[in-house]
Every structure is written in structure tokens, then in C-alpha cells.
Design a protein around this nucleic acid. Structure first.
Lengths: 232, 232
DNA sequence: ACCTGAACACCGTTCAAGT
DNA sequence: ACCTGAACACCGTTCAAGT
């Protein structure tokens, strides 16, 4: 209602002489995010936890909550920071690939990207550029918005799928299990699976496949009108 | 090398009379998965943990490791169980929608589905049916395999994106943050974002959008040849 | 063979108390 | 205002020991 503390509070007075050691730098959102990126690079997203981060900052986990809403907020900020490194070209495939490359580079980050809506400046810059390219290609605005969503969805999901499996021992076991299950398909039990064979079904080179995925989205997006507003 | 225990072990002899209470049923993979599905329905996938599950089975978490490799394995088995409920029609959209509906119904399950390759019988039956429909549509086998992947990827990722946000308070805050960030785009700073406007960019009705996504995949998949095996 | 309890090594988040 | 320690309520997984 009205200001009560006209007196200067003790904690507001910086103590005259206090410069002993390298000095623990004051906490700030930027500092926290920077430290988080460092941990991400060195140890992966799994280790970017409130507790681990506080430890790196020589602080307590509870202190971080002044600057960060929760873990999801933290991860979103980290992702946006990384998106700042991608080069904004005028080539749609190049843009999406650059985005995917960032996510591939940091296993586990893609998983959080699927779930946590980013809203940082670098993310905005990326979607602005994608929209510009789609507009230049003559795509109407409403469909451009949807195609943008679809492109980022596929890019993020591909990265999530891929990056989680890399280096994971149990992921290998899962693949083996699926390969064996597929191999046991007979022309009687699962004719179409048997006809294709394991080799075709277990995705080939990831890069070519992603290339084709993106081609499909662009070709399909350009040729597919919005469905009528009311369904049957 | 050779069998040493020809003598019957004490623990192999079922005690003659032991029927006091409703009787704790013996553990088994099926029983474990059934209990996990029950917890999923009642409390969500976040609560389908080894400890919670053991508690429901009146056992210890460590005991479950005889039947289940790890938490990912458990979740995969749960998903396969749920996939058993979907009706296998001859309509591609219907199939994918049924798959999506299962994932939508259980928030959080989709997230695990992206990461954990299922290999259970119900999953096989689903992909067999999708392949059959694609083959009937005249799609060559190699492309059918990739389109199958793409369809399930988009379906799973859409569900993951959607289902995590439902009922999450912080997800709403994230959406608000993005909406505000988008709203602040000016024709100078982000012309394409500003031109489209927040309403177009924040996806409209999910059902129509998914419908369009699937149309795009099918149209694009039918018209897009595989890229040449070697890139530039 | 199967099951157990206890241990190890962690989590996110809240809250009263300190400066 | 900002920071802290301690607490609450959890996790997955391993392992020695029991039957």
C-alpha cells in the first residue's frame, strides 16, 4: 500500500571492505543459465539439476528459485541459449538441420524441448526466419504456421529419438529386441512385415531419412489445403 | 558346465499347508504389467515407478528386477498392453488416430514412447496393419517403411506435446510467456511473426491440426521419392 | 530360483530463519 | 531482497543375505 521502510535495511548496505577470495559472484539468471550450459556440455542434460547447478555455483538449490521458476524453465533457457549459436540462412533444410544438429549434440535436451515450450529470443529469431522462407515460397500464412509447427515437431522428435539412444546400453537391447521380434514375423503371421524384412524396417542412415522426412513435409505442406473447418 | 544340484532344494518344495489370507499372488511379468496398467490409469505414468509398483504388489522394488529389466522396459510393456485395445481398421487416419488417442488418454506415456522402442505383439500388429494399408495404396516397400516411421513419430510427438501440457499449471505459464513474446513482435523486429499474429501461430484446434499433419505426411509420402543414396 | 531389506546415490521443491 | 540449511517426499538400482 505505502512504503514502510524508509530506513536503509542492514542487508542493503554493502559492507565496506569485503574482498578476500576470488569472490563468489552474485547470482543472476544469466549466470545461472551460463553455468547450466557449462554443465550440459560437460555432463549432459541429466546432470543439469537444481542441486548439481547450485553446487557448481557454490550455493544452495533453494537459492536458484529466485531466478528460475522450476527445472523446466531452466532447461528452456538453456535450449534458447544454444539456439543462439545457429546460423540463420535462407535455406529451409539448412535451418531445420541446424536446429536438429543442436539437439543431436546434446543428448537428452531434445526430450525436454518437446515438452517445454521455448519462448526465448533465439527461438523467436529461428521461427521468424523459417516463416520468412515459407512466405517466400508462396505458402499462405495460416498453413505456414502449421507447417512451421510440423517441421519443428519432426525435427525435435527425431532428435529426441536419436539422441536418447546414442550411448545407451539398454537402448541397444531394445533395438535388438525389436529386431528379433521383426525377424520372427512369418508370411503367415505378419505378411507385410515379413515381406519388407528387418533391414528395411529398421531405419537406414539417419541423415538420409531425415532428409526425406523434411522433403515429405515441404512437398506435402505445399500441396495440402487446410481441412474444412467442420468435420463430419 | 554340468548339473550339480540333483537334490531338490528346500525352496523348491512347496510347503504343504499354506493358505491363510487372500494369499499374496506370486510375482510374474504379466501380473506386474497388469498392476502397472492399473496404476497408470489411476495415477498417471509418473507414478508407475518401481517403488510404487512394488508397494501395490505388496513386495519390494528389488524383487521386480527378476521380471523387468528396468523402468524403460516396464513402460514399454505397459504401452504395448494399451495398444492391445485399439481396433485395427483398414483406414490409415483411423489407425493413427486410434494410436494417438491411446497416448492422449494417458498423459506422460507418449513421452516414454518416443524414447523407448516398443517391440511387443500389439505394436507389431499395429505396424503390420499400417504397412498393409500403405501397400494397398501402392506405396513401394522402402518408402512405406519410412512413412510408417514418420507417421508414428508425428503421432507420438503430437501426443507427447499435448498430453504433457494438459493439466499442468506451469505449461500454462509457458504458453502465456510464448504468447506474450509473440505479441511483442513488431513489423520491424519480427515482420513475419507480426504479420501472422499470435492467433495463427498458437495452434488452433488440435484435432484439425493433427488431421492436416497426417494429410501432409500421406500426400508428401506418396509424392516424394527417396533421396539419391549419396549426398553432395 | 526367487524374494527381501538395506544401502547408495541421487532428485525437486518448500519453508522458516538468517542477513 | 536475497540467500541458506534443513526438511519433506520421493526416485532407480545393486547387493548381500535369506528361503
Amino acid at each position: 500500500m505505502f512504503v514502510t521502510n524508509v530506513f536503509v535495511q542492514p542487508w542493503a548496505v554493502p559492507s565496506i571492505s569485503r574482498r578476500e577470495r576470488p569472490a563468489k559472484p552474485a547470482l543472476s539468471r544469466d549466470g545461472i543459465v551460463a553455468a547450466a550450459v557449462e554443465i550440459l556440455r560437460a555432463e549432459g542434460i541429466e546432470r543439469v539439476t537444481m542441486r548439481r547447478l547450485a553446487q557448481a555455483l557454490d550455493s544452495g538449490a533453494a537459492s536458484l528459485y529466485v531466478y528460475v521458476r522450476d527445472t523446466a524453465d531452466l532447461h528452456a533457457a538453456v535450449l534458447d541459449e544454444l539456439l543462439g549459436t545457429i546460423e540463420l540462412t535462407d535455406d529451409l533444410h539448412g535451418l531445420v538441420r541446424a536446429y536438429v544438429d543442436v539437439l543431436y549434440a546434446y543428448p537428452g535436451l531434445a526430450r525436454t524441448a518437446l515438452v517445454t515450450r521455448p519462448s526465448g529470443p533465439h527461438y523467436l529469431a529461428l521461427i521468424e526466419r523459417v516463416l520468412a522462407v515459407l512466405a517466400a515460397a508462396g505458402l499462405p500464412g495460416d498453413r505456414a504456421a502449421w507447417l512451421l509447427d510440423l517441421l519443428l515437431l519432426v525435427a525435435t522428435a527425431s532428435a529426441a529419438e536419436h539422441s536418447t539412444r546414442r550411448g545407451s546400453a539398454t537402448a541397444q537391447l531394445e533395438d535388438d529386441a525389436l529386431a528379433e521380434a521383426l525377424a520372427q514375423a512369418t508370411p503367415e503371421s505378419f505378411p507385410n512385415i515379413a515381406a519388407l524384412g528387418v533391414d528395411h524396417l529398421l531405419a537406414g542412415p539417419g541423415s538420409l531419412r531425415l532428409q526425406w522426412f523434411l522433403d515429405v513435409l515441404v512437398n506435402g505442406g505445399l500441396s495440402t489445403p487446410r481441412p474444412p473447418p467442420t468435420g463430419s
